[in-house]
């Protein structure tokens, strides 16, 4: 197992480097190939209505007139050792790890990201727990009573949930439960400050996001359970005289859940890269919002930073999921 993890970690690092290189190329090489000059690029980089001085500063600091691989090298160096940007009058030092510097709002990317991650984490994990529990419970009940009223109701709700877009459900939730009937909070409060308020504000966001995913999990669990309950070992468990309840949970669910957990890991990993729409709708200052800012402003350092972060989470989630699967299923031999 250890050697497997080591190998995968090594592969993950390589992968992240590749992702960063590709992203870098997309942002800095393609425009060049499309014919943009360093100046134009710098202008894009700095956003709207820059001054000539700003452009020159950016151009120089990012080495936009230098070959792409040099730029990339500087970028990598920055991650390890930090970078310094000479903005003419001032010098800005970007501490390691330096994932870039936004010339727009004059902030280093990394500190911003780190301050926002907890918010995205709160949103993602909270919703994830909710959708996992609700999805699995609904799926199990549906599987145990297929084609019953409960089954059809659950599947119906699930189908609706997955069909309605977030900007509809989310906004509806806010409208109804935050404004019309002010049950929930409006502004985000960190967990450490006030857990009750934290949960209170996030609850509608959790529910809206969960509704989206719950459907998939309910269906997955339902089909997984239906299949598992037909397996021979269930028959053996019953033949031993176990209560049906024990048979369903300890024998059935345990086996059916394993593939679901792995899907869960992947979904969560992707979500951590930024639940863009949800955060926008609910005005949560998370990574997703940061990404939106970057996109609207055409602020490449922000975008680059978010992309790398998302990639990291996905790769890590992938590895975690594989390890979890091996831990859950003793038949799986990692190789």
């Amino acid at each position: 197992m250890i050697s497997y993890i080591l190998r995968r970690t090594f592969a993950a690092v390589i992968l992240l480097l590749v992702v960063s290189a590709v992203t870098f190329a997309i942002f800095f090489l393609l425009p060049r190939l499309a014919g943009q000059t360093a100046d134009q690029l710098a202008q894009q980089y700095i956003g709207k209505s820059p001054s000539k001085a700003d452009i020159a500063a950016v151009k120089h600091n990012l080495g936009l007139d230098q070959p792409v691989y040099v730029q990339y090298w500087h970028f990598i160096k920055g991650i390890v050792a930090g970078a310094t940007y000479d903005l003419g009058p001032t010098t800005v030092h970007c501490d390691a790890p330096c994932f870039g510097y936004s010339f727009k709002n004059h902030q280093a990317v990394w500190p911003e990201l780190t301050s926002r991650i907890p918010i995205t984490l709160s949103l993602a994990v909270g919703a994830a727990v909710l959708w996992l529990v609700s999805g699995v419970v609904a799926g199990v009940i549906s599987a145990l009573k297929p084609r019953s009223f409960l089954d059809r109701t659950f599947m119906g709700i699930a189908l609706t949930g997955v069909s309605l877009p977030m900007f509809f459900t989310g906004n509806l939730a806010i409208l109804l439960f935050t404004y019309q009937v002010p049950i929930f909070g409006r502004t985000y409060v960190p967990l450490t400050e006030n857990p009750a308020e934290w949960a209170n504000t996030l609850f509608p966001a959790w529910c809206s996001l969960a509704l989206l995913y719950s459907a998939i999990y309910a269906r997955l669990t339902r089909s997984g359970m239906l299949e598992t309950m037909n397996e021979d070992f269930i028959r053996t468990a019953r033949a031993k005289g176990l209560r049906e309840r024990t048979v369903v949970t300890r024998h059935g669910l345990r086996a059916a859940l394993t593939p679901i957990i792995t899907v869960f890991g992947m979904d969560l990993g992707l979500l951590l890269g930024g639940a863009v729409i949800t955060e926008s709708v609910f005005s949560l200052p998370g990574v997703g919002q940061y990404a939106v800012q970057g996109i609207t402003d055409n602020d490449l350092p922000k975008i680059l930073g978010v992309t790398l972060l998302a990639a990291f989470f996905v790769v890590f989630a992938n590895l975690l999921v594989d390890v979890l699967y091996a831990a859950a299923d003793p038949r799986v031999r990692l190789s």
Partner: peptide
């Protein structure tokens, strides 16, 4: 009947690999 299953009467099945829980 459940109380008798596994105690007074027991069963063994054809394919022992699938008849036992893999986990």
């Amino acid at each position: 009947v459940r109380k008798l299953r596994g105690r007074e009467m027991a069963m063994i099945f054809q394919d022992p690999l699938s008849a036992m829980h893999p986990y």
